[in-house]
Design a binder for these strands. Sequence first.
DNA 1: GTCTATAAGGCGATAGAC
DNA 2: GTCTATCGCCTTATAGAC
Lengths: 223, 223
Amino acid sequence: MAPEQVDAPPPGDGPESTGPAPAARRRVRRAEIVAAAARIFAQQGYAAVGMRDIAEAVGIRGASLYHHFASKEEILYAVCLTVTRELNEQNLPFLDAPGTPGQRLAAFVRAHLEFLQPRRVEHIVGLHELAALSPAHRAEIDGYRRYYQRRVRDVIDAGMRSGEFAPADPRLAAFAAFGVLNGISSWFHEDGALDLEEVVRGYVVLIVGRMLGSREYFNGQNS
Amino acid sequence: MAPEQVDAPPPGDGPESTGPAPAARRRVRRAEIVAAAARIFAQQGYAAVGMRDIAEAVGIRGASLYHHFASKEEILYAVCLTVTRELNEQNLPFLDAPGTPGQRLAAFVRAHLEFLQPRRVEHIVGLHELAALSPAHRAEIDGYRRYYQRRVRDVIDAGMRSGEFAPADPRLAAFAAFGVLNGISSWFHEDGALDLEEVVRGYVVLIVGRMLGSREYFNGQNS
DNA sequence: GTCTATAAGGCGATAGAC
DNA sequence: GTCTATCGCCTTATAGAC
């Protein structure tokens, strides 16, 4: 039996080799794969993309992806879950903040658009590729989306009952508002004629001031 | 040599066998294939659908589709071209009709929504699967779409310059209007809580009366 | 106009070396 | 953690019989 070497330092633990811990490196790798997959899925569509395409985008071979994800669908699930859950966590608090329904919705519209700006490809995937998810994953994502939309509809409903908003069917107004908000993914580009701040200001006016009829935001002085 | 039988009627040309001419039958078959493909493409996504899936939906074998279309992409092209071109042909005349910009846009919104109601699946395909078209086909469809949107933006611009509409960036207002209009494909179902006429009336008010600010349509008395 | 049979290649996923 | 090699299946499209 070899002599016991208790408390000996692990080999190679010198100052120059202290990189990120293995668990952190693994998380970073997963995030790289998810980001690359989101970009390619958004451009070509989930079914048209091969595991080899995703792997090439992160500089590894197709088989190596299976060390990080059990299947191609798990990568899609990670893309959709991340963007959808963070959308809820980041933006719904603005609907609970102090202020009138119009003020809360205006802050929400700004937050929604600014959140999605750096996550454009993930949002496109989350909007268009849900049919490719497994039934269980699909149900989970749909749950987040339904809750998000219902919370907005409830605030619209409150604003109409208080008289701050002009009368309309709250369901229809909520569908229309999300049509405007989500439509941005199909036309906005960073190098386009409009920058994000112009879009945010304009959409707060068009949605909260005009479509819902809040006088505070009708002319864009407060957005 | 057999005796000549000039002007003899073709065999089986009796009264009970006079069906459609062969050219008409062929056109009908093509339309059947396009309709079935649109439905399946909309549900599963173009790349996830096989030629065998389309063939099965019309009751033939996969190879038989190649008698009607040269490739799978040609079927997608037929779906996209038909719905996009007819959208232009059917609805743009409402923008040239007599009346104020608000009246013309209100008629256009109604026509757009009523046109798409029986073509929901084709519209979804035309919105989401353009990336799978060949570059030449893609350019043709994009041309129709750009023209359609520019015509609407021009009417919005005219209404703002005449003072009928409230001031706003016409590009942003047009994007917002199309966001509302096209968003309907992702939530409207025939057996849902709202019927089409309610949606049409509500959207004319929300888009023309509220978002654009035409007083004639603000309260829904004229829609 | 539809069929059967098949060519030629890409797919997701796995096994096992290093 | 990534690699090479490969399995079995599915894909679009073609050839030629009927």
